[in-house]
Design a protein around this nucleic acid. Sequence first.
DNA 1: AAACAAATCAACCGCCCCCAA
DNA 2: GTTGGGGGCGGTTGATTTGTT
Length: 247
Amino acid sequence: MGNWGVIEEEWRKGPWTAEEDKLLIEYVNLHGEGRWNSVARLAELKRNGKSCRLRWVNYLRPDLKRGQITPHEERIIVELHAIWGNRWSTIARSLPGRTDNEIKNYWRTHFKNKVKKLSTDNSKKIKSCLLKRQQFQQQQQLNSQIDMKRVMSMFEENETKIPTYVPKQDMTFLYQNTTHEQEQGSFFYSMINEYANMPVSEGSSNEDIMWDIGLWNLDDLNANFNTTPPYNKTPPCLQTQLATPFC
DNA sequence: AAACAAATCAACCGCCCCCAA
DNA sequence: GTTGGGGGCGGTTGATTTGTT
């Protein structure tokens, strides 16, 4: 990158200066968040709207939590990634003061390395996991008597609640909010099922596959979670004991 | 102390969606 | 129905910092 900090197409790029930060903070204090494209005009900042928004959201916002991700936060990230995959903004909503960018960076530095290592060491295990997943899907198709549309509509009804993090043990509120025994089980089941059925594109590298699998331990899945009705066990990712990353 | 490697993180990019005009 | 502004999102880049030899 040879043009850090230089003017390009009238907008400045690169690292923000203290003076620019000051102007942006003053602007937001005066006008509030939003209307980022007018910042350049009103705050005399030679930054485009996106750049201003990003700087504010990821760095200047007063409610940002500084410092390292705590073990508790890490646990939440791991759990939510098991549910949501790479939906960093969704995960970030459950971690007050943390940004999607921060979580994304944290994940890539702390977990992708493990993926790399595992992808070279454990290719057999990966294949075994994929096989198990395939078998799981087949088994699920045979056994399923669930009206998935109905279940997914339940999922959507509850979706506004899910992004707000509640401790795993408290997530039973969703469970308890349903009426029928089978639905109580099937709601969680549908969350797992949705994840387990995510397609793996042809030509995926081991690494891609591992990302796709996320942190699911399919051994745990098979061992601890009924795949036939009644679905009376909490999925591994929601159990008090964390699912062991990878197979 | 220096050189190199690895980790970290701020910032950018491109794509997408939403919504008002 | 179209268009353009505004903003969200995930992926990626590359400068800086930290650790290791």
